[in-house]
């Protein structure tokens, strides 16, 4: 801080003409996304966690339960993989919650909110960050799955659609979590809240055991659980449903992929505006 008094002209440049809404949105979304990419690079724990944990799950489930749970007409590895995918990406959506809570705690939300930036940009960048983390997890899990004997019995395009559906579902959940993250007082709280919501959601489903094998009322819950539809859709798209498995008679059970798409659309239509509105009102401390 020297030499400033010597120059009569103050430092800096005047604020430029602000861009149009769309151009601004793309710029701001990219800048905040880049911020989250740098964070992934700088905080190796995130990357270690997102790669090691799925590997661990794949190995645990395939080797610990493979001998216990019998799936007629298929192998447990083929059955379980869609479940592990779903569970991992669903939990991957929680980063947005804790990151928003942390940003509020750190006060950087106040900085963003006084800048002439798109009000959705911070959330767009944050949920994009989750999407990237989940994409990395998916690759790691699929490679690990292949090594332990998981096989895709469908076309390449169907498999891609399966991956896209899993990522899309988690992306929509990221927006829900981001909203929750802005409604709690601390990052620790949001972790507990999301675990309370996500554990029942992923475990009381067809992710690890056939939903039909669950006792009532868990069975009813599982059949209506969106994660069940997601897992079922992924299983079908990967060709991992054993031939001859009876299909439930509800519309959701017969059209799980469409049901998931509808669900994702509804979640985004409700929670994107809610999260953006919340963002425009919150301030640190």
């Amino acid at each position: 801080m020297t030499g400033t008094t010597a120059t009569p002209r103050p430092p800096g440049v005047d604020a430029p003409q602000q861009p149009g809404a769309l151009a601004g949105w793309f710029n701001d979304g990219w800048i905040t996304t880049r911020r989250n990419l740098i964070k992934i690079k700088r905080v190796p724990d995130i990357l270690v966690f997102t790669t090691l944990q799925p590997i661990m799950f794949v190995l645990l489930f395939t080797y610990v339960y493979a001998g216990v749970i019998e799936i007629p007409g298929s192998t447990y590895v083929d059955f379980i993989m869609a479940g592990i995918f779903a569970q991992t990406v669903v939990f991957g959506s929680t980063y947005s919650g804790s990151a928003m809570a942390q940003d509020l705690k750190d006060g950087i939300i106040d900085r963003f909110r006084t800048l002439p930036m798109s009000p959705s940009a911070v959330l767009v960048g944050r949920t994009n960050g989750d999407l990237l983390i989940n994409s990395i997890s998916m690759v790691v899990m699929m490679v690990t799955g292949f090594i332990v004997g998981w096989r895709i019995h469908s076309s390449f395009l169907e498999a891609v659609a399966g991956v896209a559906l899993l990522l899309l579902f988690a992306y929509a959940l990221s927006w829900v979590m981001a909203l929750l993250g802005m409604m709690v007082r601390s990052p620790e709280v949001i972790n507990n809240v999301s675990f309370l919501i996500l554990f029942p959601l992923t475990f009381i489903s067809n992710a690890f055991v056939p939903a039909e094998s669950l006792p009532e009322p868990l069975r009813t819950f599982a059949l209506w659980n969106p994660v069940t539809a997601l897992v079922q859709a992924a299983r079908e798209l990967f060709g991992n449903v054993p031939p001859g498995t009876p299909v439930g008679d509800s519309w959701v059970q017969q059209n799980p992929a469409i049901a998931v798409l509808v669900g994702v659309t509804v979640i985004l239509l409700i929670f994107v505006p809610l999260a953006v509105r919340r963002f425009s009102q919150v301030t640190s401390r």
Binding site: R42, G107, I108, D110, R111
Partner: peptide
């Protein structure tokens, strides 16, 4: 047209 510096440093720790 405004510049703001709040009471607590609003910086990104990872950057």
């Amino acid at each position: 047209i405004i510049g703001v510096s709040g009471q607590y440093a609003a910086v990104d720790e990872n950057l």
